[in-house]
Design a protein around this nucleic acid. Structure first.
Lengths: 215, 215
DNA sequence: ACCTGAACACCGTTCAAGT
DNA sequence: ACCTGAACACCGTTCAAGT
């Protein structure tokens, strides 16, 4: 075959072949994210994404094996965005490990509040077997590792208790994930709604994580 | 042509079941729970529940306004079962408040492991507005209050840190809920699967909650 | 190679009609 | 009062056919 032949740019293909979508795969993911934000998880169907992009309902099957594959791609995107936000917050508070951890957790909660439906796709059971999507697993691991790095640095600085960083990270992740999910489901502390109270509750919960329940 | 030979199952159903179902509402909830356990959340449809009970697909609408109403009833049932299990564990360890709290949390995790799909209905977004289902809210509050009671008793015994019991309970609930959800989604600590490791992880996470991350 | 359109088996929901 | 069956507008998925 001709290894020398350059592939046409996407603009070129769009002009010469309007029949073919420039990058249908990326467009479907984008459409899925928009549906998620505007209409919620129930509206995120393959057919709706195809409709939004302007292709037939069967076109997506050229790029995704099934609905789960689209959801996995969207979830992967979510983990990357989450990692970026957590790391950005983490970078801003390098001086104090406990505050750094707290702000990283706050970034997680902020992501949850900003993209509740996206978070639900990332952790819901619509993706039956996450292990079947290597890119998704990798993105999830990167997010987890961002937390592990913060723990490890804090331990080196002598400001976080000793122990396997992965185990501590799992515990912290569970806590902040639980806070996030209950928050977006309006189920954190029944009878204590209102975002001011909720903010306080999250902060105090994260601090309690540091000091412990022991008197 | 086939009028002479109806399918055996429908014929039997027509003869054994009265025209009016004894308690269709309860039967549909029961069927829903069975579907949830046997086939998962995606299979829990109004039509499938009706099929399982042996009524037409429109019969459920006499007892539930819509699919969400059935889900809410099933979720409510779940909160009641969860409360019972948490309280039962709590009763067994009255002597030591910290252990009592730990075992109550373990009961929560056990419920999650035993009924993962049920837990997801209880906290998922299929029930768009939980507040619209007073029985569900009440059942959720009872579960939460079981935790609050344990905290309060522990504080009275001087073995749990001071602070508003509701706020402490919210924090603990978030933690144990996060552990449960990540666990049933096989996402607690990527690369650390296997139920033995997971058990250890849960235990150490709950103990960490008591002692704190502070060195 | 990439996309379309018909087709199939499912849904939730509604409503006139039957018992 | 309670349930049925047809009907409608949706799905996911497949596949022969078009460009």
């Amino acid at each position: 075959m001709s290894a020398e032949r350059p592939s046409p740019s996407s603009e070129e293909r769009a002009k010469t072949r309007p029949y073919h979508h420039a990058n249908l795969r990326a467009a479907l993911i984008e459409a899925g994210l928009a549906i998620l934000a505007e209409e919620g998880g129930a509206a995120l169907t393959l057919r709706a994404a195809a409709r939004r992009v302007g292709v037939s309902h069967s076109a997506p099957y050229r790029h995704f094996a099934d609905q789960e594959a689209l959801l996995a791609a969207i979830a992967q995107e979510g983990f990357d965005a989450l990692t970026a936000q957590v790391e950005e917050a983490s970078e801003r508070f390098r001086a104090s490990p406990p505050q750094r951890l707290e702000e990283a957790c706050m970034a997680y909660v902020r992501f949850a509040r900003t993209h509740p439906n996206h978070l639900r796709v990332m952790f819901g059971d619509e993706i039956r077997n996450p292990q079947a999507h290597p890119g998704l697993v990798a993105a999830g691991t990167r997010a987890f590792n961002a937390l592990v790095a913060i723990i490890r640095d804090g331990q080196v600085a002598g400001q976080i208790v000793a122990g396997r960083p992965q185990a501590l990270a799992a515990s912290i992740w569970a806590h902040v994930h639980g806070l996030s999910m209950l928050l977006i489901g309006h189920r954190l502390a029944p009878g204590l709604s209102g975002s001011d109270n909720e903010d306080e509750l999250v902060r105090s919960s994260l601090r309690l994580q540091y000091t412990g329940l022991e008197p």
